[in-house]
C-alpha cells in the first residue's frame, strides 16, 4: 500500500466524534466591529501610519500626479544610485528623470548576480493596506516580480490611501481573495528583521533594510 493510502486509511479508521459546525469567522468579526466606533477611512489611515511607524516603516504622503517626482527626491536624499521598478511604472518614472532607473524586464536567471549586487532600491505597487497591523498587501505578477520587494536593500511601496482595510479578514473578503490567488501573495509589515541574537532586534536580516510607503492622497489633503 502506498504511504498516501496508508495515511488516509488510518485517518478514516479513527473514531469520529460529533463533527464541529463550520466556524463563522465573519460573524466573529461582525460582533467585534459592533462593539467599536464605526470605521472611517481617516481613522484607518491614521492607524495604519501609526502601526507602520511602529514596525520602522516610513510613510511619505504623495499625490497621484507628484509621486514620481517625490520618489526622485527621496532617492537623491538617500543616495540611491539604482532604482528597480516593474514595467507598470517604468514610463512614469522615466518621465521624472530618476537616475539609474532599471526595469525588471528579464527572467531572473539572466541577471541574478546584477540584481543581488547592483540594485539599491526597488519600487512596487500594493493591492492595499491593513490598518490593524500596519501591513501592505502585495501581489507580485509578471510586471512586478516577487523579488522586487525582497532583494533591493530599500523598498518603496505605493499605497492608495483609499485601499486601507480594517484588518486582514476584511481585506481578504472584500477583495475576494479565495476566488483566485496569485502564485505568490504577500503581507509586508516593515523592513526585514530578526531578534535571533540574544533577543536584540536588528533590521535588514535578509530582505530590505528600509521600507518607505508612498501614501497616495488627494491634492487638498497634502496641503
Amino acid at each position: 500500500m502506498s504511504d498516501r493510502d496508508d495515511i488516509l486509511q488510518r485517518l478514516r479508521a479513527a473514531p469520529r466524534g460529533k463533527a464541529p459546525l463550520l466556524p463563522d469567522v465573519s460573524a466573529f468579526h461582525a460582533a467585534l466591529a459592533a462593539g467599536m466606533p464605526a470605521s472611517t477611512p481617516a481613522a484607518r489611515r491614521t492607524l495604519f501610519c501609526e502601526k507602520m511607524a511602529f514596525w520602522h516603516g516610513e510613510v511619505v504622503r504623495v499625490t497621484h500626479d507628484s509621486w514620481p517626482e517625490k520618489l526622485r527626491e527621496l532617492c537623491l536624499a538617500k543616495g540611491v544610485r539604482s532604482l528597480l521598478c516593474g514595467e507598470r511604472h517604468a514610463v512614469a518614472l522615466r518621465g521624472a528623470g530618476i537616475e539609474g532607473l532599471k526595469t525588471y524586464d528579464r527572467p531572473l536567471e539572466e541577471w541574478k548576480a546584477e540584481l543581488f549586487q547592483n540594485i539599491e532600491a526597488g519600487l512596487t505597487s500594493t493591492r492595499g493596506g491593513i490598518a490593524e497591523t500596519g501591513t501592505l498587501i502585495i501581489w507580485p505578477d509578471a510586471s512586478e516580480p516577487r523579488l522586487l520587494s525582497l532583494v533591493p536593500p530599500i523598498h518603496f511601496a505605493l499605497l492608495d490611501a483609499r485601499q486601507i482595510y480594517d484588518n486582514l479578514f476584511t481585506a481578504m473578503s472584500e477583495q475576494g481573495w479565495s476566488a483566485g490567488m496569485p502564485t505568490n501573495a504577500l503581507l509586508v509589515s516593515g523592513p526585514s528583521k530578526t531578534a535571533d541574537i540574544q533577543v536584540t532586534l536588528a533590521y535588514g536580516a535578509h530582505g530590505p533594510k528600509e521600507l518607505i510607503v508612498l501614501l497616495l492622497v488627494d491634492e487638498e489633503e497634502l496641503a
Binding site: T133, G134, M181, T183, N184, A185, L186, L187, G190, P191
Partner: peptide, 14 residues
C-alpha cells in the same frame, strides 16, 4: 501583532 512577512504561495512561476 504580525510578522514582517506572511508569504502565501499557490504555485510555481507561470
Amino acid at each position: 501583532a504580525i510578522t514582517t512577512y506572511f508569504n502565501m504561495i499557490s504555485g510555481p512561476r507561470r
